[in-house]
C-alpha cells in the first residue's frame, strides 16, 4: 500500500540515499595533467602580481542560487527584468556549484539542511565567497527561539557580507555585491 512503511524501513531508505550520494562523490579522482599544472603555475604567478586574472575575478562573479524560503522570491526579483543582475556581470544563476563563485544563502537553515549546505560549499571551486542574505541567514531572524533552526549561517560557513532586511529589497543585494567586489579587489579592509 502506498505510504505505509515502518520506521526501520524509513531509516534504511534514508541511509541508502545518503550512501548513494556519498558514493557518487567519492570515486572521483582527477589525475594531474602536465598542461594543467603548468597553467596553474602561470596563473598563480599572474595573480600574485595583481594583473589580468584579478581584474577578471573581480568583475565577473557568478552567483549560485541557494534560495530556500521567502528571500528566494526577492532573489528571483534581483535577476528579473526590473533590477537586472546581468548588466553588471552576475550572469546565469547556476544550479550547480561547480561553475559558481558566490553562494547566496537566502532563507532559514534547519538542522536537517546543515549537511547539505556544507556539502555544497565544499563542492564550489576556490576562490569562493558567501553572502548571507536576509535576517534569517544573519542571526536566525524571527525564528530565534525555535527548536529546529540554526541561528545564523555563520555558525557553519565563513561569511563575507551580511545583508539586513526581512526581506531585503533587490537594490540592497545590488549594493552588497558591489561591496563584495570592492572587498575582493582590496579597497576595503576586512
Amino acid at each position: 500500500m502506498e505510504g505505509e512503511y515502518t520506521e526501520e524501513e524509513f531509516q534504511i531508505a534514508k541511509k541508502e540515499m545518503d550512501q548513494l550520494v556519498q558514493d557518487s562523490l567519492k570515486g572521483r579522482e582527477i589525475k594531474p595533467n602536465v598542461m594543467f599544472a603548468k597553467m596553474s603555475d602561470i596563473s598563480r604567478a599572474i595573480s600574485v602580481s595583481k594583473g589580468l586574472v584579478k581584474w577578471a575575478r573581480v568583475n565577473s562573479l557568478w552567483p549560485m542560487q541557494f534560495g530556500l524560503a521567502c528571500c528566494a522570491i526577492e532573489l528571483m526579483g534581483f535577476g528579473s527584468a526590473r533590477i537586472d543582475a546581468e548588466r553588471k556581470g552576475y550572469l546565469l544563476f547556476r544550479g550547480t556549484p561547480r561553475q559558481a563563485d558566490v553562494m547566496l544563502v537566502a532563507g532559514w537553515v534547519t538542522k536537517s539542511m546543515v549537511p547539505e549546505v556544507k556539502r555544497l560549499y565544499e563542492q564550489m571551486t576556490e576562490p569562493r565567497y558567501v553572502i548571507a542574505f536576509g535576517e534569517c541567514a544573519t542571526c536566525g531572524g524571527p525564528w530565534f527561539e525555535s527548536y529546529n533552526i540554526i541561528r545564523g549561517i555563520d555558525q557553519v560557513l565563513p561569511v563575507d557580507v551580511y545583508v539586513a532586511g526581512c526581506p531585503p529589497k533587490p537594490e540592497n543585494l545590488f549594493e552588497a555585491m558591489i561591496k563584495l567586489q570592492e572587498k575582493i579587489s582590496g579597497k576595503i579592509e576586512d
Binding site: C70, W108, T110
Partner: peptide, 25 residues
C-alpha cells in the same frame, strides 16, 4: 521537513498582535 520551524508552537508564546509576522511567513 527541511523547512520546519514550529510555527504552531511559537504562536502559543506570543500575544495576539505579535503573531502577524509568523502567519505571513
Amino acid at each position: 521537513g527541511f523547512l520546519h520551524r514550529g510555527v504552531e508552537k511559537l504562536a502559543e508564546t506570543r500575544m495576539y498582535m505579535q503573531n502577524h509576522p509568523y502567519m505571513e511567513k
